[in-house]
Amino acid sequence: MNKPSGPELLDEILDAYFAAAQIPNREVLREWIKKYPQYERELTDFTFAWIQMEEASSANHGKPDIDHLVLKAMSTVQNLYNDNESEKTSSPINNNSIEKLVAEADVQGFSQDQFAAQLKLSVNLLWKFDRHLIQYSSIPVELIEKVAGVLHRGLQIVAEYFQKQPTLALNASYKAKRQPQVSEPTNFFDEVRSDTDLSNEDRAYWLAFEPPN
């Protein structure tokens, strides 16, 4: 990736400065001028405008009509949504529920390997998902998004699929006298850690989403 330069770099610097400073103050400005002396003027202008904004907002100019403003804002948002309509019609969302991920891949003409690769998962993990052996609450939102994107489904449809009750493996034969028990769903990140079919790169990708204990 090319490194940003010119206005793009300045914009990134101002973003980072804004996040670092939290409130406009001389000390932080001084540090950033030292770091980026070529942008002294821009950093100073930005800070003084920031101060001006903070001071202006503390002055009392009466109470605004919130309902009127919300109406105006919604009109702006509606225009944006309407402009975005054409983008959506080019890739319509299928609102049918999902029975099996592996079957969905098949219907769309993709091999299981291809499908798993798109999701950065192993085929083994796909099967576990199809038997609902992974706890829904442990599945990263990013995976729900990926599946929705790849299958052109709504997020709710995918979330409903992941929430289904665990099932026994199809075609398995059970010789014991006791009725077979369905396994308890396991944590997604534990599965990722122990899955030997998963590449190190894909494992690292998913483990980066693991919440801290």
Binding site: F115, Q118, E142, E145, K146, A148, G149, V150
Partner: peptide, 13 residues
């Protein structure tokens, strides 16, 4: 992988 597989509407951060 077929091209349309990567043309996702929703994508992670």
């Amino acid at each position: 992988a077929p091209a349309e597989l990567s043309g996702s509407n929703l994508s992670p951060l």
